[in-house]
Each structure stands twice: as structure tokens, then as C-alpha cells.
Amino acid sequence: MDGDPLQEVIKAVIKQYESHVMPKIGSFRKDNGRHEVSGVLDFSLLAIDYYVFEVAVTIAYMMLENPNPLDVGGAVLAGWESVTVLSDEEKDSLFLLVLGRLCQSLVYGRYNVIKYPDNDKYLLTTAKNGTRLLNKLWELGKKEVERKWFTDASTFSDK
């Protein structure tokens, strides 16, 4: 990432994650290993982890594939919260968790292209839309993006 302007955004996301999300992680609800399966999305990420991480990963990757990426968060939240409502701490961390996942995917993609250049098309899948999306979310900021997501989620919930 040396010299890439995106590096500064990634460093800022990491810094905010450390100061705003890490102190709250102890309050996040964790998967207890008991499940009622209603569908399977992706076994590659199957783990016992914090629920809000699953929401963030879903929003991040769904945004990458949507022509109107900001419209995704509210729909995902409404669906998630129709089963399990996020706590205030989880909601407050969601924006940075989504950005963190985009950062992680972009950095891993670039790193792995160095190791496996013949697989660059797949490894840079996130980069196709991810760089622009990460920059857009960062520029809009937490307050504006959350306003959109939570307003949209409440609209879906009222139906």
C-alpha cells in the first residue's frame, strides 16, 4: 500500500477501530454455538463470533455488488433485527466494522496478488468496487451513513 492514497484511509479506519470499537467488544453478544438454521450463506466464514461482525460482513459484501450501495445497509439491518435486535454498542460500532471489513479485504487482496499473480482476477474482486466504496463511505462519515442505514431499516420494519 506504500504511496497509495487509500493507505491513509485504511490507517485512519484502524485507528478509529482501536479507539471506538475495541473498548466495546466485551459488550457485544457472541454466538453461543446453539443454532436454529434458517439458511446458509457462506461456510468459509463459519465461526463462533460476535453477531455484529456477521452483520458488518454481510453489509460490506452486499454493498460491493449493489449499484446503489448505500441502500443495502438498511435492508440488511431490518432483516437481521427482525430476528435479533442489535444493542446500542453494536449499532454504534457497525459503520467502522463495515469499513474495517472492506479495508481487510482490499489489503489481503493486494497482498495475495503478490503471492499468487495468476489468480489476480479473483483476488482483486473486492478492489473492483471496494476502493471507491471505502472512499465514499469514509468521505460521507459515520453520522451520515448511519442516518441512512437506520432510517431505511425503520422504514422496512414498519411494513
Rank of each mutant, 00 (worst) to 15 (best):
E8R: 00
S154R: 12
L99P: 02
R101I: 11
V13Y: 01
T126E: 03
P117I: 02
H20I: 11
C103S: 05
W80K: 04
S87T: 12
H35L: 10
T126S: 04
P67H: 10
M63N: 07
K30L: 03
D2S: 09
V13H: 10
E146M: 15
W138A: 01
S93I: 06
S19Q: 13
K30R: 12
E146Q: 15
M62I: 02
N68G: 04
L123A: 01
M62S: 15
I48H: 05
G141A: 10
Y108F: 09
E54Q: 06
D71Q: 06
F150W: 11
D158S: 11
T131S: 13
E65T: 14
A127K: 13
I59K: 07
D118V: 02
E36G: 00
D42S: 08
V37D: 09
V83F: 09
D4K: 04
Y17F: 14
T155K: 14
G100P: 12
D2G: 02
V83S: 07
L102K: 07
L86E: 01
A12H: 09
Y50T: 15
D49K: 12
E139W: 00
D158L: 13
Y17C: 04
V98G: 08
N68P: 00
A60G: 03
K91T: 06
E139V: 02
L86A: 08
L94S: 05
H20L: 13
E8T: 01
G33E: 06
L97K: 03
I114H: 11
G79Y: 07
K24M: 08
K136H: 14
V145M: 14
V52H: 03
F43K: 12
S19R: 13
F43G: 13
R132F: 10
L77K: 11
K128L: 13
V13Q: 00
G39I: 04
L94T: 09
I25Y: 11
L99G: 01
D31S: 12
V21I: 12
M62L: 06
E144N: 13
L6D: 03
I48D: 15
G141K: 02
E8P: 02
Q7I: 06
